[in-house]
Simulated scan of single mutants.
Amino acid sequence: MPRHLRTTDLLPIGDLARRTGLSVSAIRFYEEKGLVEPIRTSGNQRRFLRSDIRRLSFILIAQQLGLALSEIETELAKLPHGRTPTAGDWQAISKSIRGQLDARIAQLERTRDKLDGCIGCGCLSLKHCKLYNPDDQLAAEGPGPRKVLG
């Protein structure tokens, strides 16, 4: 254990699980992916920094927002290792994912607005299909709902 850390700065995996609401196996999974890094005691037991509560909470929130594990990993890699991240560290991550969230929101809004009449390819409305997609011209742009995804 690093000398600058006190035993009160560290949590056993069971305490971390209780604090985050995650199962021990989920924490081990995130450890395996490199998203949290425990410190090993002389008896080879895992001990986590209290700041790992926030890391794991961020993972849960980011997953709810639709970020892929690889995207979460990229963001968490920006945080310092071995010290508690500052408010500025978290603010930088927030700024970084804001663009991704804005793009997803825009896509959801486009989908919502077009869903009533057409799902973007015209195939649900043969009457309107001739107006929006005559002779199936959108097929040349690729598969799927081109007008929504485009």
Rank of each mutant, 00 (worst) to 15 (best):
F58R: 06
W90F: 03
I119G: 00
H81M: 10
L10G: 00
T41V: 12
R46I: 15
E75R: 10
A68I: 05
G117I: 03
V36Y: 05
Q45N: 14
I119H: 02
D113H: 10
R50G: 06
L35Q: 07
P143E: 10
Y132T: 10
L5N: 05
R46W: 15
I27H: 11
P2C: 10
E109G: 05
L49V: 03
L108Q: 02
L101C: 04
H128Y: 13
A62R: 02
L35R: 05
T8L: 03
F58K: 01
E141C: 11
R46D: 15
Q107P: 01
K130S: 15
E109L: 13
T111Y: 03
C118P: 03
K130D: 15
D102G: 01
G66M: 07
E32L: 10
K33C: 15
E31H: 11
R47P: 11
R110S: 09
E32T: 11
R98V: 09
S51N: 02
R112E: 08
W90G: 00
G99I: 08
T7L: 11
I53P: 00
G66T: 02
N44V: 14
K147Y: 07
R146Q: 11
G14T: 15
G120M: 06
G144C: 06
C123R: 07
D136I: 12
R50L: 03
M1R: 12
F48A: 02
N133Y: 08
L124Y: 00
D9T: 05
K147D: 05
Q107C: 06
T74K: 15
G21P: 07
Q63S: 13
L5Q: 05
G117R: 07
L10Q: 00
P38T: 14
Q63C: 09
R146N: 07
S23A: 13
L126E: 08
G34V: 04
R104I: 00
E37T: 15
L22T: 13
R112N: 04
R146F: 05
A139S: 12
Q100D: 05
R104S: 04
I119L: 02
L115V: 01
E71T: 10
E71I: 06
I72T: 13
T20F: 04
S94R: 08
F58L: 09
S23T: 13
G21S: 04
D15V: 07
G150I: 02
F48M: 04
E37K: 14
G88F: 00
S57C: 08
R28N: 14
Q63M: 12
Q107I: 03
H128T: 12
G82V: 09
L22D: 11
E31N: 11
G122D: 04
K130T: 15
D89Y: 02
L16H: 08
L5H: 06
L138C: 11
P143A: 12
A140G: 09
T86G: 01
V24S: 11
E109K: 14
A103W: 04
E141W: 04
T7K: 14
